[in-house]
Design a binder for these strands. Structure first.
Lengths: 223, 223, 223, 223
DNA sequence: TATGAATGAGGTTTCATTCAT
DNA sequence: CATGAATGAAACCTCATTCAT
């Protein structure tokens, strides 16, 4: 175990894969995991189940991953991958000349909402499991993700600087990003439960209301 | 055989306790559960563990509760109990004559935030588990909880009717309640994870920012 | 525990009952047991179940019976009781002047078959359980039962002495009694299983065939 | 993934065993079960007990069998195996030219009686358990067994057609097979209990008396 | 004496992980 | 390297029996 060079992007607890066969196996496992998570939460997915779906042996899973927990970062990775694809494609928000802050926020929210809904099962796994064993997802992973979110918000704010009243732009963008995430996650991942039931509107209506609120928030000055 | 009066409030899967001894045992179990949940999430708490903390036998737990899952509603119940106590005591927000909407919201948020932080371990259990097995918490329970939240918001809005601009008060209060819950839950229950990290401010600072946002939301008219 | 006088007929492991209340409780328990056995085999009947049906507490059962096993002899007792009632009433075979051995046997078989069918659940319990723990039923109990059966057969044989060819009457009556019991038990207690399926005829048809066989057996001399 | 051929005969609830190792483990478990049943009835044998005797882990038993109940069909299978061996070897009844029906029956009974006595513990398990949970042994299994018994009897009857008086050969062979089974099972499986005590003769004496009775039965015409 | 709550040994089953083939 | 059988700790749950009220 004195080898360190990574052949693919590697997460916590993952083992290096030099050979082509290895990489293929890894891919199969990742796909299987994705598919299993669409059916039930991570802790109800057994390693045997994943192996079977992947068409590999249990032992093969353990050759690639130190243990079951080491699969969690992979989920995060899948999600990031999807996010990138999305950002480059349909997710690329087209903001026209004549869009004002409110409509820009609306467009953004609607797009984001669609992605989230589609990949809910992945985020759900990370979301739930990260809470049971926070150490599984290195802080740096969240960091990267967070920074991107805050950055995006900052960009928007500076683009519409004239329509934004709040002064403390660092704090404002951080809070906006946080709120956005929280409310999306609650309703996106668990649409049928508790807090989500409070607001019985769905789809674009929901996204629009969020846009409205953020818009308002940016419009009102600190005390 | 005219036993009809319930000795304690009973939840899903719980068995009736008529005798004093039963109620004592139940109390011990509930306390043990509360304490265990401060240390680890529900699914990592074993029945044997609870029994030991409670100083009773495993069988005693099963005499009071049909199975382990039947303990989840109890967690909810403990939380409600704390909520009531809180609402009657320190939670009773004192809104002065000269408080405006913004400061009323602020007071309310700070109080709520304190309760949530203190009882996070309970809500965390319900929150997580309700998602793995939604059937465990009867929809009516959530309903009650939700309605209370929405009602509270409605009351506040009508009290400060002159400062609220939004027209659709039903939708407005529902959304406000939803947002409030979501963002509080995210940061309150899982302060060290993903979305919460986006907004690195804590305590009253966080509560105040929430109040600010809701205040703004109520101040800005629909399109 | 130096008291020995029995207040009621007592079996192995049963405790004496002097007072009226006790005897009433005992009666209730016995009835409850009878009813429970109509639904499932003895080892699937719990003591709590019996107590509930009897309308007494679990502890009361244990006050009357040393342990669960001590109930088995009671089942035997119930059966004997029924047998006596039956023998005195409908079971009293009326053998007319002009009945020959064959028709006498037939009448007897049909009657016996009816009783057995009706009380199958009791005999089933004794039959199954006596096999798991033979020590529960004192040999003397079986003995009494056996002797009666063999006696009955002997009586019949001597009554129709002229039509019986077999010499060794002791052995003959013993065997006839044994055969009778075996084949009745198999088909009577477990009509839907293995050996019983071999002979797909029911009710009187079955009883008659048995009579025929025994008749033949009595008619054919030893080698 | 073209694994289709079953490596061993499989029963209800049993899992496929493709590898050599699996089959070895299965064999060990089966042997352990056989040995355990010689000591106590099935429901008093624990899975841990079986595993220990077999020298395998508890999990190994569960890898081969869905649950404890799934072992019952195996007992039946062991018995069938022994039956086959026996039928091919010592069980092959030699009927000489000069054997008449009576002596043929005698030979047959004595042989069968010996097998039954030797494998009583197996049949006892099936016999008892099949009654507590009939669904465990597929009806087809009994059917096969039954048909063979009835066939055997039919063959004998037709071979000695001239000495058999009964007309309805279908009914006759069915009844004879049934009687044979019942009386053998009672005395063979539970020699120390109730019905068996009625006939205090053992071994060949018992077998001979059975032969005699069947012989008589075949000799006497229907009414 | 009756009650039924409490006990806890003992059984079944699951599944992450190891390791012989 | 891949395979999948074997492992066994650990969890859940039952129920005969005891014993405080």
């Amino acid at each position: 175990m004195f080898l360190n060079k990574k052949a693919t992007r590697m997460s916590q607890g993952e083992k290096p894969a030099y050979q082509k066969r290895s990489r293929i196996a890894r891919e199969k496992i990742v796909t299987a995991l994705d598919s299993a998570l669409r059916e039930r939460p991570f802790d109800q997915v057994t390693v045997a189940d994943i192996a079977q779906r992947a068409g590999v042996a249990v032992g093969t899973v353990y050759r690639r991953f130190e243990n079951k927990d080491a699969l969690i970062p992979v989920v995060m990775e899948i999600y990031e991958h999807r996010l990138e694809e999305w950002a480059a494609g349909e997710g690329a928000v087209q903001i026209d000349e004549d869009d004002d802050l409110r409509s820009a926020l609306q467009k953004m929210m609607r797009q984001a909402w669609r992605l989230l809904t589609r990949e809910a099962h992945l985020l759900r796994a990370v979301h739930l499991y990260a809470r049971l064993k926070p150490e599984l997802i290195p802080e740096s992973d969240w960091d990267k993700y967070n920074k991107a979110a805050v950055q995006g918000m900052k960009a928007l704010i500076s683009h519409y600087a004239d329509q934004v009243v709040r002064k403390n732009s660092k704090r404002t963008s951080a809070f906006a990003a946080y709120v956005l995430n929280s409310i999306f996650i609650e309703k996106g991942l668990y649409p049928n439960e508790s807090p989500a039931l409070l607001f019985p509107y769905k789809g674009d209506t929901f996204a629009d209301e969020c846009a409205d609120m953020l818009f308002a928030y940016l419009q009102v000055p600190e005390t």
